[in-house]
């Protein structure tokens, strides 16, 4: 069997992830995270916060909770079941930053935690900023054209 035929054969027979089940679980759990976020925002609003700050505070709370649960060691177990439902919302970003930080503790705070913290989330920060700049330029030009 030549190489291409083997790769085709091997990848053709390999077991697939249960996509439908994963999608449904991600849909439900992702929805619940959003619901929790909305609930938190409403609570902050009821406590007298401005609309914008309460939304920001809700995000901050979710980031904190995801970090906390990563530290306690139950985020990865939940994410194994919920998948994208926990990884796509801001909770996933929090987990992506805290988990390498915990791992790198044994190498010290500078070259360990400090250097390794953004190992996974780094690309999101870099390309997020890049896209923000590009978007800003497009927005500026569109404003100029619209006069």
């Amino acid at each position: 069997m030549d190489k291409n035929a083997f790769v085709k054969y091997a990848t053709g027979r390999e077991k697939r992830s249960p996509s439908l089940k994963n999608s449904i679980l991600a849909f439900i759990s992702g929805g619940l995270v959003c619901l929790a976020g909305q609930g938190l925002a409403d609570l902050y609003k009821m406590a007298g916060m401005a609309e914008k700050s309460s939304a920001t505070l809700a995000s901050v709370t979710l980031v904190f909770l995801a970090g906390l649960f990563t530290g306690i060691g139950c985020f990865d177990k939940a994410a194994k079941i919920c998948g994208a439902g926990l990884l796509v919302p801001i909770t996933g970003f929090s987990n992506a930053v805290t988990s390498p930080a915990i791992d790198a503790k044994s190498e010290g705070f500078i070259m360990g935690v400090g250097a390794e913290m953004f190992k996974i989330a780094g690309p999101v920060v870099v390309y997020g900023n890049l896209v923000a700049v590009v978007y800003g330029i497009i927005y500026y030009i569109s404003l100029c054209i619209a006069g």
Binding site: K15, F75, D76, A79, N95, S99, I102, D103, I120
Partner: peptide
């Protein structure tokens, strides 16, 4: 896991193979 894949507490789903 740490050397070859992801941090231990990172939440990912593993494929069946």
């Amino acid at each position: 896991e740490r050397q070859f894949r992801f941090p231990l507490e990172y939440g990912n789903q593993r494929p069946p193979m």
